[in-house]
Design a protein around this nucleic acid. Structure first.
Lengths: 190, 190
DNA sequence: ATCGTTTTTTGATATAGGTCAAAAGAATCC
DNA sequence: GGATTCTTTTGACCTATATCAAAAAACGAT
């Protein structure tokens, strides 16, 4: 879904408003694995994912990559806290496929928030939506077995599960890659 | 912190705006354990917690209570998805102490969002803040040992940890009450 | 203060899922 | 199209934490 359609769907901007808003976004073509943000840097941009899948991840104390969130097409992606509070990012952000994204800096975004009541609404709606998604995930992780967590992933992100390496999904679901591999095998047999 | 001070701190409302906004909230005195929302009902209100601690929780398939989130003083509390999407709540919501809260219905809130650009901003800021908190928790839960999760709780919610029963904290942290009891005992010895 | 209820602790035992290591299978590159 | 690298699977073993059960402690109401 193009960013234009996405914005129109959520809030009924006028043509003029929409044009102005879109003019503050930059289209970027990025290739697979090219880092957009690195752990320790301040994340300066918010991205809309038009094509591709992104993720943010960090290296734990054993140097293992832990995927925190995936961002599919039609989602806004950033290193949340870093972007909004201009603090060093705890996460790396990257695209997992060659991708087309649209970026906007914090200043430009704030400017749009100031200028348009409707833009502020858009921000609120997106933030609330994201919040409910994260709460869902939290629920899945907090008290479910490895098998149930995999099933949650299957229903919630069927598009993503077959497009990214197993190890990333495993860490996203809070289990080892070996465990996920065994679960998946057992699933297929059933 | 009173709701008035809280709102003023976040966004610079004029006196008139603030008066109008506050007039849409109802002050409620609720006693401990009195249910505000029950699993299956639609949650009709958003609450500001002025005094007391609230939580939302659900009963899992074994009938055990799982606490999902705590809401301390100065926080907005609701059954998130239920309130915004008017869907049956997955959670029960209650106060854990005799409490003073301020409530607003979805219609009145939407009315304020429509009326004031600044109100919309308030909503966005609160939602974003909540989002980062939940992401933090997710992080803590996803890959940390029981001991580390307890330490996260100590630093993130030192006020809450000594005011609510152990079992609720244990389920909030995704571990059994026995495990939390043993961890805490060991901590004291060090 | 005392009885009943709720919460916390403790001990014994069980198990889901982790870790390590190696093999098998895919994908990528010259 | 084989060599190299990356990803997934498999097996053996181990550990953190769950579960069960019962005692101890704390809390609340009369």
């Amino acid at each position: 879904m193009t960013i234009t359609d996405f914005l129109k769907d959520l809030v009924d901007f006028s043509e003029a408003e929409l044009d102005d808003i879109l003019s503050h976004f930059q289209k970027e073509i990025v290739s697979k694995s090219q880092p957009l943000v690195e752990q320790g840097q301040v994340c300066r941009k918010l991205y809309y994912v038009e094509k591709g899948i992104g993720r943010n991840y960090y290296l734990n104390s054993d140097g293992k990559e832990i995927t925190q969130l995936f961002f599919g097409e039609g989602r806004f992606m950033t290193s949340l806290e870093s972007f909004f509070e201009e603090s060093p990012s705890l996460y790396n952000v990257e695209m997992l496929e060659d991708a087309e994204i649209h970026s906007i800096s914090k200043n430009e975004l704030e400017l749009l928030f100031d200028r348009y009541h409707k833009m502020e609404r858009l921000g609120r709606l997106l933030s609330t939506e994201m919040l409910t998604k994260v709460v869902h995930k939290l629920n899945a992780i907090q008290f479910q077995t490895a098998k149930e967590r995999y099933e949650y992933m299957l229903t919630e992100y069927p598009d993503i599960i077959y497009r990214v390496p197993l190890g990333m999904i495993a860490s996203y679901l809070g289990m080892s890659q070996e465990t996920l591999s065994r679960i998946r095998k057992k699933k297929i047999r059933d």
